[in-house]
Write a protein that binds this DNA or RNA. Structure first.
Lengths: 223, 223
DNA sequence: ACAAAAGTGTTTTTAATACACCCATGG
DNA sequence: CCATGGGTGTATTAAAAACACTTTTGT
């Protein structure tokens, strides 16, 4: 079970497919499937997703939690390992007929406990945008600061100031200018500088919100 | 599979039991067992743990991650859902013969991938001590600030200043004085005031390390 | 009185948000 | 030349770390 998220048309959306069979026929569910004996859960979810989207487009995949209530699926208990997947906003992967993107804030009738899984994915993304470099997984290879602001705003659900976003990410060394610029729109304006993320692969940049270790002293000893 | 942690004698320790049978006989492993059809994974781990410790002593239990590498256990793949459990430092639960507490920084020869699970548990605890009220799960019902400092220091692995700890937790409304005091030790000193945590049950107190929503404006609208 | 531990008041540091203003381009 | 975004510089705010100093006890 994976909640694959992407910022599309200014809103955070999730990839759902419509069930054909009972139980919960015609309701929308997260892509997933059974685990094989020769793969771990992450390999499995990547294999399942390969049927829906080009998995090379997935910029980030991580575990969320196990959902295991005995009655979560009617007729025999199924344990689901839930994942979060992220796709950069510049790609529009081909998806099969029976799948569609839905805004996470306006979900259709969902199957089983899949709405809870989407909420979990959304919460995880929100949190990690604050203390990791996970923005790289939402953004295209090159972007303007205001485009990045749009991505963060959509994912976080509140307006982010472009100037502060740039400074926070720059201070952490996550952003670097490409040297290129983007031409202004039809109504004019100064051309925007293009940036890229300095690294791919998730990195925790702000591990201790508080109770940070003392700055003086070697820091190796305890107590 | 659960890493049950407790601060014992100034160090963060984990409860391990020594395997009698092959594979990995005589190596130390985390308590756990098979999931039944009528329970979810948390109910299951609590049932498994009941065989080792009085589960009423567990102040907090949470999921860590699924460990599912096909070869993690020799002879047939076993998927493990790993948990973190916390026991307040004032209780010394009875444990069976074949189990023992070990400092997480000085583990014995461990079975399977259990060392990785302990590392994960340690990391999770460290992180959550910073941005949640999880300290309540390590502390006794009443404690002095310096006792609490000892707990945080042991769990975090670096020295925490008592005065700053008190101020951080107080500002967040997590601490309240009980009105009682603790008598000083044999060498004298001012008697220490006793405190308690205001709430039990985990609470996130510092959700946005950075990129916090704008303080002005209602905060409900996007972009 | 003095040592020891607890607790308070104050300063310093850090890192974010807020805001005013300057810049570059298209019409 | 002015409207429209982009970008920079500076002030403000917030919260934690660091440290000096006072308080309360036992011996």
């Amino acid at each position: 079970m994976a909640a694959v998220l992407q910022v599309r048309r200014e809103s955070l959306q999730v990839l759902l497919w419509q069930r054909a069979q009972e139980p919960h026929a015609r309701r929308w569910s997260l892509p997933g499937g059974r685990l094989r004996d020769d793969e771990d859960v992450e390999a499995s979810i990547r294999r399942q997703l390969a049927e829906k989207v080009d998995v090379r487009k997935l910029a980030h995949v991580e575990q969320l939690a196990v959902f295991s209530a005995p009655d979560r699926v009617p007729g025999g208990r199924i344990v689901a390992s839930a994942f979060l997947g992220l796709i950069p906003c510049d790609v529009d992967p081909e998806v099969p007929e029976d799948t569609a993107w839905y805004p996470v804030d306006n979900l259709p009738d969902t199957a089983f406990d899949h709405e809870a899984i989407v909420r979990r994915a959304q919460g995880r993304l929100r949190a990690k945008l604050s203390y990791t470099n996970l923005g790289f997984a939402l953004a295209p290879p090159e972007f303007t600061i205001s485009a990045l602001r749009g991505l963060y705003s959509a994912a976080l659900g509140y307006r982010v100031a472009a100037t502060n976003l740039q400074r926070v990410l720059s201070r952490r060394g996550l952003l670097e200018p490409t040297g290129h610029t983007s031409p202004p729109g039809p109504s004019g304006g100064r051309p925007a500088a293009l940036f890229r993320f300095t690294g791919h692969g998730m990195l925790v940049t702000d591990p201790f919100a508080v109770l940070r270790p003392p700055s003086k002293g070697s820091g190796v000893d305890v107590r």
